[in-house]
């Protein structure tokens, strides 16, 4: 009986103790129809745009509790889409993403800092082709409001741009860059809408 009381007290402590943290940072479910990870890269003179159609995301955000806020994105490399199936297949090959061997790219935030004007610098671990890198992703917090189309839900928005050197992440060995065909700088545009119960 005494042991049961101790266990009950411990459970109560855990529940009461954790609750303020859970209540403080809201968890948002990504609206995949209105979110994406877009990219743009030079091809000789033109710019080729693409996106990743398959991904999962975890968004926990509270501007007043950045320490507990978190962004976690898992992107399926085989879902790369540039509107030309053969080019996508080439991007999935070992020449670029090597999707068969490395099916996912992930970004997991480790520190979020407000830099003013609604911009948050999200520092995180960016894992590409099995190797981990530090990446700073500036995200502009667009705000929170009642979802105009979904009753009882709120929507949060973030947009951010970052330019990375794909060769530094070993996305390509450089042969197409050396030939002057595919640029090395890739502009990444992250656009997120996420929903939560009011």
């Amino acid at each position: 009986m005494k042991r049961l009381s101790v266990v009950s007290l411990a459970l109560l402590y855990v529940i009461v103790g954790v609750q303020p943290v859970l209540a403080a940072v809201r968890s948002w479910e990504m609206d995949k129809a209105h979110s994406n990870f877009y990219f743009e890269v030079e091809h000789i003179y033109s710019k080729i745009r693409g996106q990743f159609n398959e991904y999962t995301g975890e968004v926990r955000f509270d501007p007043n509790n950045l320490a507990e806020s978190k962004f976690l994105f898992k992107i399926e490399t085989a879902s790369v889409d540039t509107k030309i199936a053969k080019r996508d297949k080439h991007l999935q090959s070992a020449d670029f993403f090597d999707a068969g061997k490395y099916p996912q790219m992930t970004f997991e935030s480790t520190k979020i800092t407000a830099t003013g004007n609604g911009v948050y610098e999200v520092l995180g671990k960016f894992t590409v082709k099995g190797e981990e890198y530090q990446l700073r992703l500036p995200l502009k917090f667009s705000g929170v409001k009642d979802h105009p189309a979904v009753k009882g839900k709120e929507v949060v928005g973030f947009n951010g741009k970052v330019t990375i050197d794909r060769l530094a992440y070993k996305v390509g060995g450089g042969k197409f860059f050396d030939l002057g065909v595919v640029g090395k700088d890739v502009e990444i545009f992250v656009s997120i809408e996420a929903l939560a119960e009011k």
Partner: peptide, 13 residues
Amino acid sequence: PEGLANLPLGTKN
């Protein structure tokens, strides 16, 4: 040449 781990499967292909 495209890699045997990168087979062109699915409706896209």
